[in-house]
Simulated scan of single mutants.
Amino acid sequence: MIVCHCASITDREIHAAIDWMRAADPDTIVTPGKVYRALGKRPDCGGCLPNFLDTMELNDSLAVPRVLRNLRNRKKDVAR
């Protein structure tokens, strides 16, 4: 299914880009901008962003890496 008509990006391409980024760097934070760059494309009108984000959220590899979770809390604990 086409998610971004301006750049002709499909849901399969979004999932493939997320999986590729996670495999290349397990600790990376995956953002829509990084997905566009991984696909060699640029956003245009932004009308697809809600669908783009919904598609990204369906990917099991999207979660924030465990090592990066709760950084604020850990920083406060170290400062005490």
Rank of each mutant, 00 (worst) to 15 (best):
M1R: 15
M1I: 14
M1G: 11
M1T: 15
I2E: 13
V3N: 12
V3L: 10
V3H: 12
V3F: 08
C4H: 04
H5M: 08
H5L: 11
H5T: 14
A7C: 02
A7L: 07
A7N: 07
I9K: 07
I9R: 03
I9S: 04
I9F: 09
I9C: 06
T10D: 09
T10H: 01
D11E: 12
D11M: 08
D11H: 11
D11A: 13
D11V: 08
R12N: 15
R12G: 08
E13G: 07
E13A: 11
I14T: 12
I14Y: 05
I14W: 05
H15T: 00
A16K: 13
A17Q: 10
I18Y: 00
I18C: 02
I18A: 02
D19Q: 13
D19L: 04
W20D: 13
W20A: 15
M21A: 10
M21H: 04
R22N: 10
R22F: 11
A23L: 15
A24Q: 14
A24P: 06
D25K: 06
D25P: 01
T28P: 00
T28Q: 08
T28L: 04
I29Q: 08
I29T: 13
I29D: 13
T31N: 01
P32Q: 07
P32A: 08
G33I: 15
V35M: 13
V35C: 14
V35N: 13
V35W: 10
Y36F: 15
Y36Q: 10
Y36A: 11
Y36I: 07
Y36N: 09
Y36S: 06
Y36L: 11
A38D: 05
A38M: 05
L39D: 01
L39R: 09
G40L: 05
G40F: 03
G40R: 02
R42C: 11
R42V: 14
P43I: 13
P43S: 12
D44M: 12
C45Q: 08
G46E: 10
G47T: 04
G47P: 05
G47N: 09
C48S: 12
C48G: 08
L49I: 15
L49V: 15
L49A: 04
P50T: 04
N51R: 15
N51I: 01
F52E: 08
L53M: 14
L53H: 15
L53Y: 11
D54C: 06
T55F: 01
T55Y: 01
T55N: 03
T55Q: 03
M56R: 12
E57H: 10
E57S: 09
E57V: 04
L58S: 09
L58V: 03
L58G: 15
N59K: 00
N59E: 04
D60A: 14
D60C: 07
S61N: 13
S61C: 10
S61D: 15
L62T: 03
L62W: 07
L62N: 02
A63F: 06
A63V: 04
P65N: 12
P65S: 09
P65C: 06
V67M: 10
V67E: 10
V67F: 02
L68F: 05
N70R: 10
L71G: 01
L71P: 02
R72H: 02
R72F: 00
R72A: 01
N73P: 01
R74G: 02
K75F: 03
K76I: 00
D77C: 05
V78W: 09
V78D: 04
V78P: 00
V78E: 08
A79C: 01
A79N: 03
A79Q: 04
